[in-house]
Design a protein around this nucleic acid. Sequence first.
DNA 1: CGCTCGCTTGATCTCCTTCAAGGACAGTGG
DNA 2: CCACTGTCCTTGAAGGAGATCAAGCGAGCG
Lengths: 239, 239
Amino acid sequence: MTLLGETLARHLECFGTMPAEDRAAIVALDGEVRQVGRMRDIYGVGEHPRHIVLVLKGFLMRYSIGADGGNQVHSFYLPGEAPDLETLYLDYMDNFLAAAVDSEVGMIPHEAVYQVIEDYPEARKLIWRQTLVQAAVFREWLVRNSHLTADGALAHLLCEIHLRAKAAGLANDWSCPLPLSQELVSDALGMTAVHVNRMMQLLRRSGAVEWRGGVLTIRDWDRLSELAAFDPKYLHLRR
Amino acid sequence: MTLLGETLARHLECFGTMPAEDRAAIVALDGEVRQVGRMRDIYGVGEHPRHIVLVLKGFLMRYSIGADGGNQVHSFYLPGEAPDLETLYLDYMDNFLAAAVDSEVGMIPHEAVYQVIEDYPEARKLIWRQTLVQAAVFREWLVRNSHLTADGALAHLLCEIHLRAKAAGLANDWSCPLPLSQELVSDALGMTAVHVNRMMQLLRRSGAVEWRGGVLTIRDWDRLSELAAFDPKYLHLRR
DNA sequence: CGCTCGCTTGATCTCCTTCAAGGACAGTGG
DNA sequence: CCACTGTCCTTGAAGGAGATCAAGCGAGCG
């Protein structure tokens, strides 16, 4: 059993089950561990990655550079998650993968993963499914940024991060790590950092949620999720 | 050779190549052809489809219902395209697939596709890749709706549709079918129909593009794509 | 201590929404 | 052949959510 393999297996099992032998094949996967400094790119536009990435510590993000020079964050990735499984079957990156804070990542060579995909159909289905769930999440981000008001959108993002942290085993009760700046959150929500600040105060004062020192604490899930019109179905989490 | 199989094969070949035997397996796929009236759902939230859909005539769209009751369109689908390959490996729909105008669709049973996926690795890779390209498109829609001004966003959508129409063999020179109402376009861009109307007039007057009677005509691609900051890489089209 | 980075606050401006109504056009029935 | 109806496009005026610009503040850190 390897650290990277076990991490990937646990992540995939958020979305479904697989037989013991398929699981064993995933667990046997191994690779290199790397440190990535905050705001450093792991992969850039145009590259063709030769490894898949696993988040071990920290927070990753996927982003692209908007026409106005501002960044658009497409998604954040928590420890335990796999941000870029799609590189297995796409020719080149059309966006950036970077560390939002100082992070530790695992890199498993594509070749090894291809072997598992060929030999273990159930493992393959779960890997495929994970890439499909990511697509569903992107769609939800589209809805969020297009159709929610600023307070609702922020609430929605916080709901999502909390649920994903729980799925990754990072949350105890109603708290989870959220080591991002308001600036980065604003890049995700497509608004200004100033406005994120004001909306955050609004949520805080309403007693729905707290966010200090890199820790997110949900005070009133019902209020928060109602404000966000949050329905977790799109995450396709098992259980 | 069947109509549906040939249509699917051509679509997949927009994104890569496969050996003759894999192609033949795809081409041999067949199913039922159905008419779908305008604004009628094909699949709804919570359902578990048992077929994949191909657009033969008309225009499909994928949408979900926003918190405010307004619709968010996630994507449009042109004749020749396959909107919902992800249903092969997801348990349930988290959004709606519907006909934007009176349409004709083909439905191929999942079982038959699974067989091809098991037996023909190169066909499988292309199908997988198609689902990944869709995810890339969703990300681009996120960027568009979050970071572009209204005129740029509209221009961007028109650029995308024109390129996809060309890939599907529907465009001659600078014209392609676009049988949508401004209302539907506004649901895609996350703005009001009134504003779409005004932005469209702006584009028209600037001489960049024409859109009348369900036909889109690009008058000045350079101007349009510059206004949209359009970079087609995200479509991952081969050529 | 001075520096930087991120959070906070205030005032003004603008893009887009909202609401409301008029007009072009196709389909339908008398 | 013409009123009738619905759908979509168009136009105008007023209001609001969020952007922009600018400055102050607190904490960590060399």
